[in-house]
Amino acid sequence: MTSYLNVNGRQHAVEADPATPLLYVLRGELGLNGAKYGCGLGQCGACTVMVDGKAVFSCLMPVRALAGRAITTIEGLGDVTTPNPVQQAFQEVQAAQCGYCIAGMIMRAQSLLETNAAPSDEEIRVHMQPNLCRCGTHSRILRAVRSASDKLSLKGSPAGTK
C-alpha cells in the first residue's frame, strides 16, 4: 500500500505496510538517521520527531495515521553547515557523550521552544522528562536548551526550521 508522507516539507510516496511505525519508514525507506530505535515502547524518546509541531514517539506512530500531517525530523532543522539554533546550542555546549539520545532530545526541545520561546528552567525539565539519557548528559542538555531559548527569546523569533 502507498502512503503519502510529508517529511521536512517534502512529499514522499512510501510503499509499506500501513501499520509500519514511522521510525522504520524514516530510517529504512527514507534513509534518515536522526530518529533512533531505543525501546519501541514509547518510554525513552530516542525516536522523537515532530508531527504537526508536537513531539511524538515515532516508534509507535503507524504511517496510516500520518496522511496529510507535517512530519519534522532533526534533518529538517538544519545540517552540519547550517545548524538551527537548537542544534547549534547543543554543539556549543558540547551536550553529548555517546550522543545516541541527542537527536531525540533536540527534537523534544525544539517542540517546546516553538510554542514557548522563553520557558522557565522548571518548564524545560518537565518538558524534557519523557526522554532518557544513560550517559548522564542531562545537565549539559538543560544548559543547551536554556542557551537556545535565551538566544531565541532575545531575537524574539520562534525556533526556526530550515
Partner: peptide, 23 residues
C-alpha cells in the same frame, strides 16, 4: 585546549553517526 568533539556535529544533525545508522 577545548577542541570541540569531532563526533558531535553529526550526532546533532542526523548524520550517520552510529552502527545502527549503517546501511
Amino acid at each position: 585546549t577545548n577542541v570541540p568533539r569531532l563526533d558531535i556535529p553529526a550526532k546533532t544533525t542526523g548524520g550517520a553517526a552510529f552502527i545502527q545508522d549503517m546501511r
